[in-house]
Nucleic acid binder design. Sequence first.
DNA 1: TCATTTTTTCAGAATTACTTCAGAGATAAG
DNA 2: CTTATCTCTGAAGTAATTCTGAAAAAATGA
Lengths: 206, 206
Amino acid sequence: MKAKNLETESVSDGEIGGEYAELGIYDVMLLDDTISGKSCFEIVRSLRQKHCRVPVVLLTEKYDVEDRIKGLKAGVDYIMCMPYDNRELLACVDALLQRITDSTEEPFYGNTRLVLASGKLVCEDRSVRLSAKEFEVMRLLLQAKDRLLSKEVILARVWGYDSNAVENHVEVYVGFLRKKLRSIGSNVEIKAVRRMGYTLELREEA
Amino acid sequence: MKAKNLETESVSDGEIGGEYAELGIYDVMLLDDTISGKSCFEIVRSLRQKHCRVPVVLLTEKYDVEDRIKGLKAGVDYIMCMPYDNRELLACVDALLQRITDSTEEPFYGNTRLVLASGKLVCEDRSVRLSAKEFEVMRLLLQAKDRLLSKEVILARVWGYDSNAVENHVEVYVGFLRKKLRSIGSNVEIKAVRRMGYTLELREEA
DNA sequence: TCATTTTTTCAGAATTACTTCAGAGATAAG
DNA sequence: CTTATCTCTGAAGTAATTCTGAAAAAATGA
C-alpha cells in the first residue's frame, strides 16, 4: 500500500504478513482477526520488538474489551469491529498515513543532516546534493540511527522488493555516499558489519 | 523445523529421534505412537532428564486417559488422537513455536546485554561490536541463562548440524567473546565445565 | 607427584564479504 | 541531437572474519 490511491497487497498467512511488514515497504498494515498462523497480537508484538513502527489496524470479529486492551498493548494503532463502516476505515487509514508524511523531521546523525526539501546532505556550512537513489539510501540509514540495516532491507525499500537489483547496488551506493560524506567533512561514517549490513557511526578523531 | 513455512525432517526410529532432539536444533518435535524402538514416554522422559525443553506433541492411536496422564507426566506438551484435525495440530504447533519466538526480548545476564538491532554487546556505557558468529554464540549462551550448553549443541545451532565444524571452533569463539566481555568491563564470565560445555556466571569480585 | 585429558591461546592460512573502479546503458535536460 | 547526470554491471583489489593445527596451560585422577 503506497500513499493515496491506495495500492494494496494481501496475504492470508499471518506469519508471512509479518515478514512482509518487516521489510518496511508498506505504509499501513490491516490485520484481520481471522487470519491463520500466529495470532494478530503476536504478529504486532513481534514487529514492534523489531523496531518496525508501521501503523497497524486490527479488524476484529467481535467486540471484546479484553482483546482490545491486549491488542493495544501489543502495539496495534487502531481497532475496528466488523461489520465496520468503510468510511471509518478509510478515515483511519488516512489519519495514520498522515502521521507518516507528517513526520517530516529532518533526519540527522552527528554533525550531518539530510535536508529533505532540497535533497542535500548538510554539514555545518558545507553541503552536497544527492541523487535520488543516494537520497533514499541515506534517509534509511539516518532513520535507523545506530541500528543495523541489512542489505536485504535496503534493497527492498529503495529498489522495491520485486526488483532484480542485487546487493552490489547497495554496496556501490554506500560507496557514493561515503565519498560525499567525506567531501563535506562529516563526522558520520557508514560502517559495514560483515554479513549483517550497514550502520552509522561517528568517525573516531585522531 | 524452523518458524513457519515449516521445514520438517522425519526419522522412524525413536532412539535416533531422541538423539536428534537433544542436539537442540529443532523447534518442535512430533512424536508418533507407532514409532519403533523405545516407547514415546521413554524418549520424552529421557529428553527432559537431559534438560532438553524442546516442545513435544504426541500423536496417539487411541484415546486412553491413563496414557495421556502418563504422557503429560513424562513431559509431553500436547497430546492428539488420530485421526486428528489438522487445524488443531497447526494451532498447537503455532502456540508452541510462539513460546520460542516470543523470546525476542533482548537477552541479558549480569550487567551485560546483547542488543539485537545493532549487533552489539553492551555494558553500562561501554559497548563492543560482535561478528556474526560471535553474535550467534553469545545469543545462545544468554538465552540459556545459567543452564549448561554443550559444545555439540552450540555447534549444531551456530554452524549447522551438518557442517564439518569441530569443537575447537566453539572454543576459539568463546575465547573471542571472553576478550570482548572483559574489554567492556562486563561482570559476566563464560565458564567452561569440563567435558560438559559452557555456561554463564557472574564474575566474583575481589 | 606424574600422566592424561581437556581447555585455552595464538599465529598464519583460507575464505568470504566488502570496496572500488571503469565503462556501458538509461534518462533527462538543453 | 548533444550533453550531462544518474544508474547499473562485472571484475579486480582489499580487508576482515573464520578456520586450522599446534603448542601451552589448566584440570583431573591415579
